[in-house]
Design a protein around this nucleic acid. Structure first.
Lengths: 204, 204
DNA sequence: TGTACATCAGTGAACGCGCGTTCACTGATGTAC
DNA sequence: TGTACATCAGTGAACGCGCGTTCACTGATGTAC
């Protein structure tokens, strides 16, 4: 359908999209500039017109990941804003689902594959926006006595640690099968979240 | 000093040790069979007498990692057994220190680089021994009212999630510099652990 | 104790592969006049 | 509206590299008699 032109028009974004697809098919180890170019229907040298090197492409793909995560979490956060307990659960659940839906994309964002992150300001900015959302979650949780008081940035690190650890152990198959089989995943997540809440959230 | 013989004697372990060293120098991406063989002073085909393929070597290196982690954590756990609050803090701190001392070794154990873990029974066994130690920690914490009651295996997953998440975010540079600079790392860890304890552990 | 031989743990050459990156180039686009 | 030209975004050949794995081989070891 899309007529092939010599000039692509939006190759930069097409490469990022292609990269996301390669990641989901071949995993982190299978991501190469050449595959990404091929998938975007372009010669393997073409990406160099848009990305300085492979790291820059990885930065682009990771930034896109944080953008999608942000959109998803922001929407959920707004939808459940009136009820901080639900809000907490659903945001955490969205995080887990995001990672589960595309583990390699999640890993490349967060697993130190991108070196010298500070060289990629858009990446840093999107990562910070996500963290900021977490901090707001802490505030609303504290306001209704759901979460313990204390500096919001520290509480955010703790909450993120809990949810991120759960997610990482999960996608890397470190949680024993028997534990996972005995109840729905979301229930296990709520149980884990309940470890740091003051009020008990039902595991319905 | 060590006289070179045609038959090495303990090449299998020498290869694992060499692998650990390569990991610490070149990171996960820099680990190759050829480098490991060279480091052990042996031709690049020699490893195949002891490991079926690269994955098998990775399994060996990972298993060794879990063995070292177990020894370290076991010792700390015993040393602080009389005081569950200290025990909890020091075991968690040992986990963090282990990962910080050799991030690539830690990552290869736990980051899904080893595929089909179940094909490597020694790996599975050592990983389980570590988890079992965590479960015992939960029991002693619950006995003195430090940790919430509930199924010990679930509480163990939660605690592991918290400490693992903290560790993972840390070694992958996801925690903002400003937060890390404001206080000692161990204090931040205790603050995080305190989110899921019933009694407050001082951040001294 | 000495010899024959099977077994084992190494060697080194060779294989095919995919990779990141560079370079001289060319086709398309947009702007100045 | 038409032409000249600079700019830009592609192409395709080539580079050198390190990789995992295989294979025929050889040197050392240990056992049977």
């Amino acid at each position: 359908m899309s007529e092939r032109k010599y000039h692509h028009g939006d190759l930069k974004n097409a490469l990022i999209t292609a990269g996301v697809e390669i990641l989901s098919q071949d995993g982190v180890g299978g991501l190469s500039l050449r595959k990404v170019a091929a998938r975007a229907g372009v010669s393997h040298a073409a990406p160099y017109a848009h990305f300085a090197d492979k790291q820059a492409l990885i930065a682009g793909i990771s930034t896109e990941g944080f953008r999608r995560l942000y959109e998803k979490i922001k929407a959920v956060s707004l939808a459940y804003a009136p009820d901080p307990a639900h809000q907490l659960v659903e945001v955490a659940w969205a995080y887990v689902q995001f990672a589960l839906a595309d583990p390699a994309h999640f890993k490349i964002m967060v697993s130190g594959i991108l070196e010298e992150e500070r060289n990629y300001p858009e990446f840093v900015e999107m990562a910070q926006k996500n963290f900021q959302l977490l901090v707001e979650l802490i505030y609303s949780g504290q306001a209704v006595g759901l979460l313990r008081s204390g500096p919001a940035d520290l509480q955010a690190v703790s909450l993120w640690s809990l949810v991120h650890g759960f997610t990482a152990l999960l996608i890397d198959h470190q949680i024993s099968h028997t534990i996972l089989e005995e109840r729905p995943l979301k229930q296990l997540l709520i149980h884990t979240l309940n470890q740091m809440t003051c009020l008990e959230i039902p595991e319905n």
